[in-house]
């Protein structure tokens, strides 16, 4: 016990030190973004700005605003559609198991681990064929398709927690596949939908590979635009940091307010969940 009382302050000291280390990039990001360009000297990057200057936000916002909008046009439909598909699949694969259902599930699951480079060349050819190359709709399609494995996994695990007896007794009362889904499963899946939606929102918002290969200039989502910002000739660090903060803000806000659900999704993604 004596050791314990001594160890507690040490423990807090350690945790606080590590927290500061984790927050350091955020500090630098905020401090830099609030400085005017002539104050962004390399040797003073750790110092607080002498005066608050929001002009880098104005610059970053005017450059990134169209792409921010693109990202919302992409993320909202893609999240809703992939959550719906996942819910349908999860319901079937947990409560209406047919012969070989588990094999089908495993085969679906493999899709979430593949490097997307291995489907990218045919996907771009395909999108060109059907006229969706370089469109937000094309990106929505891609994210819905490759979101199937993870959303199916999450909903399947979630529905596994609904007792089979409940389904059985509903069947005996004469309810069929659709009625059970509508009146038992859906009302019980609100949390499931929240977890899946947050997960898909964050991932699709942050995604880069599909975004950079399937869209060009005016159609590009925010992450590509942010990357392009740093590719410009003179690196304006203050504008870049402001841009990075703007790009990160939506997912950060989701995390701050709904972090609990985000972590649940995270753990569900490790298959065994």
């Amino acid at each position: 016990m004596a050791i314990k009382t001594l160890a507690k302050p040490l423990l807090y000291l350690l945790l606080i030190g590590l927290s500061l280390l984790f927050l350091m990039p955020v500090y630098v990001m905020i401090v830099t973004s609030l400085k005017p360009l002539d104050q962004v000297t390399l040797s003073e990057m750790w110092k607080l700005p002498a005066t608050l200057d929001f002009s880098s936000y104005a610059t970053a916002f005017s450059k990134l605003a169209p792409n921010l909008l693109n990202s919302f046009y992409l993320v909202i439909p893609a999240t809703i559609l992939s959550a719906l598909l996942g819910s349908l699949n999860g319901y079937v694969l947990s409560k209406w198991k047919f012969k070989g259902a588990d094999t089908v599930f495993t085969l679906i699951l493999f899709g979430m681990f593949i490097p997307y480079q291995s489907i990218l060349i045919p996907m771009i050819q395909f999108l060109r064929e059907i006229g969706l190359y370089n469109t937000i709709t094309g990106l929505v399609f891609v994210h819905v398709v490759y979101g199937i494995p993870i959303t199916t996994l999450m909903f399947r695990n979630f529905y596994a927690g609904i007792p089979d007896e409940m389904i059985e007794s509903a069947k005996i009362d004469g309810a069929g596949f659709l009625r059970i889904f509508r009146y038992i499963i859906i009302p019980l899946s609100i949390t499931g939908f929240v977890v899946v939606a947050i997960w898909q929102f964050t991932n699709i918002w942050n995604e880069f590979l599909f975004a950079v290969t399937i869209t060009t200039s005016s159609q590009q989502p925010i992450m590509v635009a942010l990357q392009n910002l740093s590719g410009s000739q003179i690196v304006q660090w203050n504008v870049q940091m402001a841009g990075a903060l703007l790009a990160a803000l939506p997912t950060l806000l989701v995390y701050i307010f709904l972090g609990k659900f985000f972590v649940r999704g995270l753990l569900a993604g490790s298959v065994k969940g």
């Binding site: 990039p25 630098v28 990001m29 830099t32 990057m45 964050t202 918002w205 942050n206 995604e207 880069f208 992450m223 942010l226 990357q227 740093s230 660090w237 870049q240 940091m241 841009g243 990075a244 790009a247 990160a248 997912t251 950060l252 989701v254 995390y255 972090g259 985000f262």
Partner: peptide, 13 residues
């Protein structure tokens, strides 16, 4: 919750 792109930009600096 951040994008790898954001992380890359910040840590680059």
């Amino acid at each position: 919750a951040l994008s790898f792109v954001v992380t890359g930009v910040v840590w680059q600096w």
